[in-house]
Design a protein around this nucleic acid. Structure first.
Lengths: 106, 106
DNA sequence: TACATTTGCAACCGAACGGCTTCATAATAC
DNA sequence: GTATTATGAAGCCGTTCGGTTGCAAATGTA
């Protein structure tokens, strides 16, 4: 079973949950009210998001508030960073790269 | 069939392809050499990435060079942006939010 | 023309996904 | 003590995913 942030944010429902919870920590029931799917399915999503450390549960009596762990979001940003770097370098040497490529694949 | 950037980058092979192609445009065969899967599977991934506008094919004779469309990456960045804003606001009003939440869910 | 190379497409297959329903458990209310 | 509420876990089911093989089309070469 693959379980990483990228797989976690691939599902639109989970992305919506993240946005909701970013504003304020919420209980599964409260979250489920925003969707047309059963509470139990939301629970599944919350489990996945928690396993990826994107959410952290905080028990309060019989309620559980799920809170966003914004730090984990930075991992996505870090992945994007690698492209920013690569592209900076590539743009500088764009013509060289294209030239090399054409010769290599002649 | 769901087909958006988030679903596209959910697969680790596709993420690796994007990194490869970011350095320089490549043909399917050249890309496939970097993986332990069949060329046809790579073709499938390239199709998905192209349909999401993350890659753009450029025909050259019988070869096809797949090139990264870096602009599309910015959509992911834009999605993250929404969290940056929400979190800035939330931190300021964190105590207020928690107070409101407790009353609302009493 | 005949043949090799590069590529994409279709069909197939097992595993994972994302819903669902049902049930168990723990905390609260009566 | 009993009923209610909040939640998670287990199992089912149809669909999607990511790999495979086989084949056809288009281009380049002998």
């Amino acid at each position: 079973m693959r379980r990483d942030i990228f797989q976690a944010i691939a599902d639109p429902t989970r992305r919506a949950i993240l946005v909701l919870v970013a504003v304020q920590a919420m209980t599964p029931n409260a979250i489920a009210e925003h969707f047309d799917i059963r509470r139990q399915s939301i629970s599944k999503h919350l489990r996945i998001l928690s396993e990826c450390d994107l959410l952290v549960p905080r028990q309060e009596g019989r309620e559980i508030f799920y809170e966003l762990k914004i730090d984990k979001m930075k991992e996505i940003d870090a992945w994007l960073d690698q492209f920013r770097k690569i592209m900076e370098d590539s743009f500088k040497q764009l013509d060289d790269v294209l030239f090399t490529l054409k010769n290599k694949n002649k």
